[in-house]
């Protein structure tokens, strides 16, 4: 397996605070790789080190076969978490500007900027200023700016934050189409469900330490099973069942983990008459559950 990016034992300290601790990762070419973890876990710091915006205090980064990303900046695409646009610039101009900064000739950058904007439904906005864009459209312009030069490796820091469901869909399709084009995509998120849907590989980080990493399918197939219950009524009833070990209750649906001794059939029988059950489903654990178990925290955070 060819790796696009390899981190070996990188550590980053801000004074006495260790933001990333002895992290090693291998990211296969052509995969969608999710960096997961709660806010402040060290995702952004890791990404900034990959982009050479920060330098690691210890360890090495091998990116597209180079030790220093400065040399191959033009082959990378990066969408930071904190992102903005020049408000007074026209959308086509700003996309083209980022293209030229990545080494595209001006003429080609202009042409591609227009094509991309039209392709992603912003054709009417080509000559409008960025300040006129809605948040979702702005986000689209930003991501097009990161893609205009056809980067081999794309790093997206929290690409879904602040997007409505329609734009989440657009973003997801974009990531999938990048994979189809053979690009490697790394994205970070603190929303586990989003990662579950599209990632080939995930990496879980908590307080600067790696919790686990690997193919999503392997991680999920760890032998643990949960019960997905969709219901109407008072969820407290489920908690009252003596065999319940942990529960992630969202109000209308809950993910329940039983003690080894308990039987799911007993739970179903117990709930009949007490709750209006719409679905009762035995399945693989959610990433949320895996994460919570790995860091040893409480269920409902």
């Amino acid at each position: 397996m060819e790796t696009a990016l390899e981190l070996s034992g990188i550590t980053k300290r801000f004074g006495s605070h260790v933001a990333v601790n002895n992290l090693s990762l291998a990211i296969p070419k052509g995969s969608i790789y999710g960096f997961l973890g709660p806010n402040g876990a060290g995702k952004t710091t890791t990404i900034r080190m990959i982009m050479s915006i920060l330098y690691p205090d210890e360890g090495q980064i091998q990116i597209l076969g180079h030790a220093n990303s400065e040399e191959i900046k033009d082959r990378l695409g990066y969408l930071p978490e904190e992102k903005g646009l020049y408000k007074k610039m026209k959308t086509a101009d700003i996309v083209a500007y980022f293209g030229t900064l990545k080494g595209l000739p001006l003429r080609e950058a202009r042409k591609r900027a227009k094509e991309l904007l039209v392709q992603y439904g912003l054709g009417d906005w080509v000559n409008r200023k960025c300040e006129a864009l809605s948040k979702g459209m702005g986000q689209k312009v930003q991501i097009l700016s990161t893609l205009i030069h056809n980067p081999e490796l794309v790093i997206l820091d929290e690409p879904f934050s602040g997007l409505d469901p329609v734009n989440v869909e657009v973003m997801r399709n974009l990531i999938l189409s990048m994979k189809r084009d053979g690009r490697t995509v790394i994205f970070s998120t603190h929303v586990m469900e989003q990662a579950e849907q599209i990632c080939d590989y995930i990496f879980l980080i908590h307080k600067g330490n790696k919790i686990l990493d690997g193919p999503l399918s392997e991680i999920k197939a760890g032998g643990l099973h949960g019960i997905q219950i969709d219901y109407d009524g008072d969820g407290q009833v489920i908690r009252d069942f003596p065999g319940v070990d942990r529960i992630n209750d969202a109000g209308k649906s809950a993910e329940v983990y039983l003690k080894d001794s308990a039987n799911p059939q007993d739970l179903l029988q117990y709930l009949c008459g007490r709750l209006q059950i719409r679905r009762f489903d035995l399945r693989e654990p959610s990433l949320h559950e895996i994460f919570v178990r790995a860091v040893g925290g409480t269920s409902d955070e």
Partner: peptide
């Protein structure tokens, strides 16, 4: 304050 700096820093030093 526009948050455009980091995008720029991925392309220029």
């Amino acid at each position: 304050s526009n948050r455009i700096i980091e995008v720029l820093l991925s392309s220029v030093s």
